[in-house]
Design a protein around this nucleic acid. Structure first.
Lengths: 228, 228
DNA sequence: CACTTAAACTGAGCCTGATTCATTATAAGG
DNA sequence: CCTTATAATGAATCAGGCTCAGTTTAAGTG
């Protein structure tokens, strides 16, 4: 088992594990969890079918690996996307934009998340980790008195992520691209004091491309250095 | 095929179809979609395995039947729960409470909804139908000038349903009961002009029990008269 | 009341695909 | 160059969704 390597270099093992994860992600995104055959994933990873089971207990576990990695990367990207010195309001906007763009860019993988938490099991740890990014921003905001605090943070969190997830679905369904105004409006109602904005007139590209570049590079970096 | 009955009474056929749906709902809710064996469902419905396939093309289709029926019932319940003459604000609160309670009461079935829309297929028709209840309330609100209209209705819809769904998950995860304040606060930020409210101090039962009774009776009625 | 027949129902067996495991290959260590 | 623990392999096993040839049921019909 790769768990206790002594004969083979750790790097080699991790590389293989990561390449299986890559293959799985690709196939899952392509044909969905049920549509994916483990044999296809194995082939895509240039590995025998049995080898997959050396690294992952079963197909579900493999899915959990893919989804977990995604959220871990998302957390890193989010942290990079937020300017530490900005106001709470600005940070929320940064996180919101980043989040919405990520949901849209990786819609298929995000969708897999549901499949990874069978029934009312606890959420994946990595998701909880990600959510803390929001909590930290809010906590700081409260400490500094920058936020109206008549509504509990926990509830605002549900507003924030719930809205963005549904908005992403809506945009996807209507085949619309990323729309800045969704975040602006969300913040307007969440933190008030705002200038709400009509939906983007047409398919205008996201303006904060550098933000996504940051993410991409981090992800690339992560993917090659392996994780899990 | 039950599609063109001539030898058997329609009522009988529909009763059987409905009893299969009942069995499926029960088993799905119990062990999830993947955990459910068609043979178990058949047994629970006192029917042979093959019979299930007379009524539903496959397991997916059976799931769609269960989920579809749920949302249809939900729509009826929602319509019953809303007082036609109330203010927009009041109607939204009624719908919000009803929605949150339903999500909590039938959490397992709601979860199945995700499984029923494989990949970015369009949503189930019944879900869209349900969403229209919200749209009608909002439209009326706008027509009457009761709503601040700086934010598009479509986006408010995502705020409304997205927030409630995430709130329901949060409550479920923390094993908390229905909490009135979630809806109150949501409306406070959505429609403004509000008195936000701290989370319910303890596990206080939902106060508008009659509302749920209305729903239940409608559901019972529906279930026996069959649908699909 | 037989009798005919379309509609319903049944469950054994087929078939796909996940998972296992006996066997073989690999890579250090001596 | 052996030895041996670790990895990798893929044929065999197994589970469970789905099919279909055969059986039962329930109206009709004379």
């Amino acid at each position: 088992m790769p768990a206790t390597p002594r004969h083979t270099s750790r790097a080699r093992v991790e590389a293989k594990e990561s390449s299986i994860l890559d293959a799985a992600e690709k196939i899952f995104a392509q044909v969905g969890f049920d549509g994916a055959k483990v044999s296809d994933i194995a082939r895509a990873a240039s590995v025998a079918e049995g080898t997959v089971y050396l690294y992952y207990k079963n197909k579900q576990d493999l899915l959990a690996g893919v989804v977990g990695r995604f959220w871990t990367q998302l957390t890193l990207g989010a942290e990079a996307a937020i300017e530490p010195d900005a106001t709470t309001r600005a940070q929320l906007e940064q996180l919101g934009r980043y989040h919405l763009q990520s949901l849209l860019n990786q819609f298929e993988v995000v969708s897999l998340t549901n499949r990874a938490r069978p029934q009312q099991e606890q959420d994946l740890d990595q998701v909880r980790e990600y959510v803390r990014v929001f909590d930290r921003i809010m906590q700081r905001g409260v400490d500094r008195g920058e936020l109206p605090k008549d509504i509990p943070i926990g509830q605002l969190r549900d507003v924030f992520f719930g809205t963005l997830e549904f908005s992403a679905r809506t945009l996807k369904l209507r085949e619309r691209p990323y729309d800045h105004s969704v975040v602006t409006n969300l913040l307007a109602i969440m933190v008030g004091s705002s200038n709400a904005v009509a939906a983007a007139p047409k398919g205008k590209e996201p303006s904060n491309r550098d933000l996504m570049n940051t993410l991409k590079s981090i992800q690339r970096q992560l993917k090659t250095s392996g994780d899990s």
